[in-house]
Simulated scan of single mutants.
Amino acid sequence: MAAARSDHLWSTWNGCVPCGRHGPVPADFRLPANYRTAVEALERYLMHTGGIARGDVVVTMYTDLVDLFEQSAADGTPIRDIVGNDPVEFVEDFVANYADGSWIRKERDRLRTAIDQAAQEPGGSGS
């Protein structure tokens, strides 16, 4: 039998709703149900499309997302006031703040560097 873990992803994967008996309850499980549903949907989208390659950046991004929703819930801010009319636009703008950990940014930088180097080589007609 696998050792018990208290982190959010493991709890979600094994179907266990954290109760605090095996460690701290993740912040997103302390949210009101409708805010938790919104955060889980955003996390799922980010997991599939976020493109963040660095683990420390992913942790910071998810923590900031939950913090935003915790504060909004505490202030009574409606979910639509947080994400607007288009949740995809919201999450894409949100993840853009963490682009330094993005694999696509690394690939864009790699492409630019390769083309700059190729253009500087003899016959590359560098500028």
Rank of each mutant, 00 (worst) to 15 (best):
R54K: 15
L46P: 01
R21K: 10
S72E: 05
V59S: 07
E43Q: 12
P18A: 08
R21S: 10
E70L: 05
F29R: 15
P26C: 09
Y45M: 07
D64Y: 00
R30Q: 07
P18H: 07
R36E: 03
N34D: 15
R54M: 12
M47H: 15
G23I: 11
G50M: 03
A27V: 03
F29D: 13
F29Q: 15
L42D: 04
A33Q: 14
Y35G: 06
M47G: 15
M61Q: 04
M61P: 00
G51Q: 08
T49D: 11
D75W: 04
T49G: 07
G51T: 10
V25L: 13
E70C: 03
A73V: 11
L65S: 00
A27W: 01
Q71P: 00
V39K: 01
G20E: 08
Y35L: 07
L31E: 05
R44I: 05
M61Y: 08
L68S: 05
A38V: 06
A33C: 08
V25H: 12
G51V: 11
D75V: 08
G23D: 10
H22S: 06
D67Y: 01
R54E: 14
T60M: 09
L68E: 08
L65V: 08
F69Y: 06
G23A: 09
R44T: 15
P26K: 06
Q71H: 06
H22Y: 10
H48K: 14
A38G: 10
R21H: 11
L42A: 11
E70G: 01
D64K: 01
L65H: 00
A41G: 07
Y45W: 15
E70M: 05
G50I: 04
G50Y: 02
L68H: 08
V58H: 03
D28K: 13
Y62N: 05
V39P: 00
S72K: 06
P32Y: 11
A73Q: 12
G55H: 02
G20V: 02
L42S: 05
P18G: 11
P24F: 09
F29P: 02
T63Q: 01
A53L: 09
N34G: 06
G23Y: 13
V39M: 01
G55V: 01
A74T: 11
V39W: 01
D64V: 04
Y35V: 03
E40I: 08
E40R: 14
T60C: 03
D75C: 09
A27S: 12
A33W: 10
G20P: 06
I52E: 00
Y62A: 04
H22F: 11
G55Q: 05
A27K: 06
T60N: 04
V25R: 13
M47V: 09
L65C: 00
D75I: 07
L46N: 04
T63K: 01
H22Q: 10
R54H: 11
M61S: 02
L65G: 00
V66A: 00
A38P: 09
S72M: 05
Y62W: 09
T37H: 14
A41V: 10
D56I: 12
V57Y: 13
V66T: 07
I52K: 00
G20C: 07
E40D: 15
L68T: 15
G55D: 06
R21G: 03
V58N: 02
